[in-house]
Nucleic acid binder design. Structure first.
Lengths: 344, 344
DNA sequence: CTGAAAGCGCTTACAG
DNA sequence: CTGAAAGCGCTTACAG
């Protein structure tokens, strides 16, 4: 077959330099078993021809991709606009880029998930999973990804039992929820409304569960759920606003900052001031949180670290054959803002 | 050489189905020149073996990647936290995923840019460029990318003359800046402080230039630049705060919403209320902007559309050989919020 | 230190 | 409708 394009190859370089292709290969990959003089000749030929190594051919030959896939299962196609996800991806790429790996991101909407086609065109050395949905749905996604037979790290998700090629890296969302509950209880709050959405994210669930766990032992403490169709400003605002027509909690609990702020706006428009009339807490404390007014009481997430550690754990597993740590849990910390009272 | 792994190949499928490898290939790629019965036998064999086509081998064979690269030149390694960039990427992936392409993102810090190594490991059918820095630095990046010899689209950047394999897709930032200036002039404002950063983004420059262009013909109108080391909350807050000790403009002009809000907080802490004591405008109106309080007067960007059109334009060029449009400019619109006065 | 041979998995002409 | 041959660009044993 005729060449489809005229890019120079190792063969061309070899001819110009008067050596064999594998000597060229050795020079490029710095194997160090080439004479200095020969290597110089090869480098000159590379310059002269403008030769660039074909990554595709190399990947093919070595059946190694130097690439990690990130799979996000989200109903929202614009999942990058979530600050935690953006931080997570930053952490992943910061680690991977340094060691010459690239990250391939794929977002799939659960309603369109099809085990046969979901991973078409994806070929990576490892996989990072950010899953949403009910436990059995998440298990389904994990089972499907296992067919790719590559080491996999789930982020923001507790481990599944009995899957060796699968590790977890997550932050202590449960503990963060507990921190918020203790703080609010100390201010005297007893009646709580928690904003939840139909899309289930295990991390958000953990925050909620951590919060509830503290209330259980407190007499008089009461938690109600405000179910929002999705986490857009409009929906959270409207849902909160409607609920406030019928009652008023001591505190509104958002499972992330966006929802907390949306609810805060609704409360303000009902003439309620934070923290005196109503308290509000969020979760994440990333990027835009510093711009919130009043500054939100929140738990500072470590999305970047979760991504960084997930990538590190995964690449280590690629190199050693096993995960050094099967469930990594990173700490979070409470940040007191202006939307909760000081101790009463 | 022995096989490095035991994944089934077309050969294995062919043997089981009792056909030749190219018949398997024809079935997989639905060439349609295979008898129904034979095709069924092949599909059964695929099922039985759990065969998955090797994307790498296919890419290698056809020297086509079905992949687009996004190159971001940014001093900030966490460039994903910028709402516009996140929207842009959403737009790119939304278009690309639908047609079976993937997006490879690479962020490079200008100080570390090295033409020889910048694109190591990147092999894509096309390139999208989001550049920062001075004009001649940007030109340098573009020249370097041209060595990859793939069609390239610059986003948020006006076209460079005389480069055929290069097109531009951007929004009307200049016009957006002009909209804001006209609006502020109508409120009676004459003295403006514009928040600028050391890192030069052509889009932000265009916003500033558009703004200035309107002031030029207005007697008494005065523009001063507040130079911020970077666009973090802390720096913009501090810079604005220091400046407010020495004077007070009629309006603060942020070239994006983040900076505008940061400046607004400084103004508030100086006892200035918007819009009565001081007016403030932003730019972008994406994601978190709805959460701003008071709601910022801004220009609504279309980062998603810019990304979507850039991807479409690029893939069309891949298929046809030339760009149908060399400079696409998308419209923006003014959104009046609560940080500017109504007409006086 | 350097090279001739073989092959990674796939698909495009070209025959039949 | 189906197949035998060739080759995409690279690198790993294996010789010398």
């Amino acid at each position: 077959m005729a060449k489809t394009n005229n890019k120079p190859t190792v063969k061309d370089v070899a001819r110009i330099a008067g050596v064999s292709p594998m000597t060229v290969s050795n020079v490029i990959n710095a194997s160090g078993r080439v004479g200095e003089e020969t290597a110089d000749r090869v480098r000159e030929a590379i310059q002269q021809l403008g030769y660039r190594q074909s990554t595709t051919a190399r990947r093919f030959r070595l059946s190694k991709q130097w690439a990690i896939g990130l799979l996000v299962i989200d109903e929202n196609p614009n999942f990058l606009s979530d600050p935690f996800t953006a931080e997570l991806i930053s952490g992943l790429t910061n680690y991977l880029t340094n060691i010459g790996y690239s990250l391939t991101i794929r977002g799939i909407r659960p309603s369109r998930f099809d085990a046969r086609n979901a991973f078409k065109g994806i070929e990576t050395d490892g996989l990072v999973l950010l899953l949403s949905g009910k436990q059995n749905a998440r298990l389904k996604y994990v089972r499907a990804t296992q067919e790719l037979k590559v080491p996999t790290v789930m982020v923001q998700e507790p481990p599944f039992a009995g899957m060796a090629a699968l590790a977890s890296v997550r932050q202590d969302d449960y503990g963060g929820g507990a921190l918020l509950a203790r703080h609010l209880l100390e201010t005297g709050a007893r009646v709580f409304w928690m904003l939840v959405t139909k899309t289930i994210w295990p991390a958000l669930e953990a925050r909620g569960d951590g919060f509830k766990s503290i209330l259980d032992s407190i007499p008089g403490a009461r938690l109600e759920l405000l179910m929002c169709e999705n986490e857009s400003f409009e929906v959270v605002y409207k849902t909160t606003s409607n609920a406030l027509l019928l009652g008023r909690p001591d505190a509104l609990v958002g499972l992330n900052d966006q929802m907390a702020i949306s609810a805060l706006r609704a409360a303000q428009d009902h003439g309620l001031a934070a923290p005196d009339d109503i308290q509000i807490t969020g979760f994440n404390g990333l990027a835009f949180w510093k711009l919130t007014n009043p500054r939100l009481t929140t738990v500072q997430s470590c999305g970047h670290d979760v991504g960084y550690q997930a990538a590190k754990n995964l690449v280590d597993a690629l190199n050693t054959g096993t995960f050094s740590q099967n469930d990594m849990v990173l700490p979070v910390r409470l940040y007191l803002g202006q939307t909760t009272s000081s101790r009463k």
